[in-house]
Amino acid sequence: MKKTLLALAAVCAMTSGAAFAQQTGSEGPLMVRVRAVNLDSANGGSTNPNLNLSVNNKVIPELDVSYFFTPNIAAELILTYPQKHDIRSNGTNIGSLKHLPPTLLAQYHFTNFGGFKPYVGAGINYTRFSSVRFDPAVQAALNPSVSKNSWGGALQVGVDIPLSKNMYLNFDVKKVYIDTNVYSNGAKVGTFKVNPVLAGVGLGWRF
């Protein structure tokens, strides 16, 4: 029975692979993209208006790996390295932190626009805050701290434009929901909602 099941699984896998190859031509199921992304924070999104917290906007590098289960359905993992941001309160720099925000998205790719391949995605983001540093005067007066972990949703829209065989120009926009609780002397004083929009441009290769 085990041998029969293994044989059936092998036949199904080969049939699925052959069908995918027929549908996508020479393209394989894997796509790797590199992007330059402008991170535009929703600055000021604090639940405590007295804090009026913000972080600086910046351009960051981004790497993502997508796997196509069918020509239309894919999963994308988005990665970067920990990004450093200044922390401001009412426009005054009070410290800095780093955040690492890997994001996993399920995507639908439209295949009826000729060479253009627009897509939409939705998924989940996990952000890890680290290397949180505050100005010594602020630290002495308020003993501030932030939550180290954030979970939130993510939305995406983009397009892949063919340049040559298996290489694409990519435009991509994401809205990612990131927040962290803010504490002073151990007591919660608000929640800072970063919630950035990330607009990126880059290149992708299909294997």
Rank of each mutant, 00 (worst) to 15 (best):
T4D: 13
A42D: 15
L142F: 11
A122R: 05
G202R: 02
N195C: 04
L30D: 09
A122F: 09
G28K: 09
L79K: 11
V11P: 07
D86T: 07
I87C: 01
S46W: 01
R206I: 00
Q107D: 07
G114V: 03
R133A: 10
N38H: 12
F69E: 01
A140R: 11
N195P: 02
N50Q: 07
P29G: 14
T180C: 00
F113R: 01
Q156S: 15
N48E: 03
A9T: 10
L63C: 06
I60F: 03
R35W: 01
G44F: 10
L163Y: 00
N143L: 07
D172F: 09
G204C: 05
Q83H: 06
A187V: 15
D179V: 09
Y168D: 05
L6Q: 06
Y183A: 04
P29W: 12
K84Q: 02
G115A: 08
T70R: 02
V157I: 10
T4H: 10
S184R: 08
A122N: 07
A106V: 15
R88H: 10
V146T: 14
Y177H: 01
L97E: 00
A106H: 09
Y168S: 04
N185C: 03
T70E: 06
W151H: 15
P61V: 10
Y126S: 01
N166I: 12
T4G: 03
A21Q: 05
K58W: 02
L6M: 01
A199I: 12
M31V: 15
N170D: 03
L39A: 10
G121W: 03
V55A: 08
F69G: 01
Y177C: 08
K84Y: 01
H85T: 06
Q23D: 15
F192L: 12
Q156D: 15
S66V: 07
P118Y: 04
V194R: 06
R88T: 13
G123H: 01
V120C: 03
G45R: 11
L8C: 07
Y81F: 12
V138D: 15
K98S: 10
S147A: 14
N43F: 12
S130E: 11
L39V: 13
Y81C: 05
S16K: 05
L79M: 12
K98A: 05
V34L: 14
